[in-house]
Design a binder for these strands. Sequence first.
DNA 1: TTGAAAGCGGTACCAG
DNA 2: CTGGTACCGCTTTCAA
Lengths: 349, 349
Amino acid sequence: MKNEKDKIDLADANFPTAKHATLADVARHANVSAMTVSKVLRGVGSISKDTRARVKASAEALGYVTNGIAGALSAKKNTTVGIVIPSISDSVYSEIISALSDSLTEAGLTLLISESNFSGQIEERQIRMIMSLRPAALIVTGGIERSISAEKLLKRYPAPILQLWDADNPFGDATIGPSHLQAGRIAAEHFLKSGLNKIAYVGAELSKDICARLRLEAFRERLAEENIALECFVDEASPRQAASGETLVNQMISSGYKPNAIFFLNDSMALGGLRALLKYGIKVPDEVSVLGFNGTSRLNTVQTQLTTISMDRRAIGTTAGVALRAILDGKKPEKIPPTKLHILSGTTG
Amino acid sequence: MKNEKDKIDLADANFPTAKHATLADVARHANVSAMTVSKVLRGVGSISKDTRARVKASAEALGYVTNGIAGALSAKKNTTVGIVIPSISDSVYSEIISALSDSLTEAGLTLLISESNFSGQIEERQIRMIMSLRPAALIVTGGIERSISAEKLLKRYPAPILQLWDADNPFGDATIGPSHLQAGRIAAEHFLKSGLNKIAYVGAELSKDICARLRLEAFRERLAEENIALECFVDEASPRQAASGETLVNQMISSGYKPNAIFFLNDSMALGGLRALLKYGIKVPDEVSVLGFNGTSRLNTVQTQLTTISMDRRAIGTTAGVALRAILDGKKPEKIPPTKLHILSGTTG
DNA sequence: TTGAAAGCGGTACCAG
DNA sequence: CTGGTACCGCTTTCAA
């Protein structure tokens, strides 16, 4: 590598791969000091109308884009917010992120998003990676088995930490999301009030998903109070998707067990389960009531409308964004109530 | 604000909100120079086994996390890659992003994601914001009306620029995605080979979505070659979602027009359209053939399987990731062929 | 094998 | 209203 100075050549400013113009370049062009340019561009300090205009023109002419890296290092302030979610492509999280991103963008903050694929180990790596960029705040998702070291890392990070999704296990300065224990109870009540009493649960990969376990646990407990036993069909090795739901229900029915109600880990699995039930000619909801969780498949369905437990996912993102902005503004974190859950009634029970 | 030095107190290293340990802190702790620590931690230069171990232990003890901001500024190298997509919550993009993110993470790169909501103006703002963080590369999504100034900004950015999604209008160092003109032709052929000849198109917000317009254009052209006129039902003011598809088909049928084939802007609108058709008791595909675009609703459906034009979306992300890594490694960009499209046959035509 | 010095491109803090 | 100076925490370069 050469070490020659290659300051931007003003004449070259429009050349495609010209180097970035710096504050000093703009200053030279406007015949003022770098400090003055900095102030004008940030809109601080008092600068004469005249210089202000000249500086702005020069910046424009040179296509100056401020260097946030240098700014962050110098001011020890950063405009990025890091977030780690289990999966970007799962609409449950992406809707939250989308709303959150909108809210943060309004405040001039940029989101650094990464995914953990529900793995505590990957999560830790991602947290490290993101932390090295010294974000103004860090947002993590509850419900996965977080490593001890990741937790330690988060606890000592000198900036706000928020947690999403798992209101039953608060973490950091604020936690925004539904209570999955409550979801489980709602599911149980839903079946109970229809007098259903032969009940099954279908899920997958529970070892990776604490929230799903909480739902199941509360569901089972509430049923136990009514002396109803719960039959579980869970495959730890399959993904939490439609195909797995279909397979598990196939197994259930062909094993000779036929419940009158099934609670699924999520909507996808419920849809798969529905396919299997229909294949066996089982009437839904007359013979078997089916309940999902999340309210995500609703929009993508033609005839059958899955009955499911739903919530306003965008609201989670927006609430998190608003809370974070408040904390960053120095307000002290308020306790945020769990996101409201409701049964979205469909045609499946 | 006080200006006192407050270097990290070693004894406090485990205190929750302790400041970040710096290279100098680690150096002091290990009784070496900062330079040596830097080398050990990056694994460069030749360092005695002994010091190497001591430094590593100290870093560990102090919970040192490298400061990527300072590193990037100093080395003029950055490990972030910026990307602007129309919508994070649209599974079409989020699946691409997810695969891309995995691919980049492998290479130690972090994704800075932001969304434009299909607005050229917002896109420009996001590009500016991301650019100020001097990412090692920038990825944008084709198909939206990019502002002139955004384009200029991208063109002069001295790092690789990739474009996603719109293979018909290449941009930057490489473009990865399907040809929407081809998609339109495939759709036309699909209907033609079944001898269908009274054909409608249903869409929304075409003004925002260049790719959808390309599909429509090629579709119309191919039909015109066979002297088939195309009837369009487009609402510029509604979102490109199921509800709009339902409304538009309702309007179509109640206006007395009944085609024998409909090509929809995307799968969501097609599903909405299907609902409307079923409501009118119209047999699909016997009376009307229905074709979607994207292959996204497939997994979330119970009975009706939408026939649609699909592609491997994760492959787009992976290909983009691989291409980017190659370019970043100094290889010169190769021309990437358009992503393959195929008809995913379902039960709707 | 080790480390001192000189920045990277900004911003905080003062002094003029 | 304007600008000089001293860093922010790291890496590059080069000398010891």
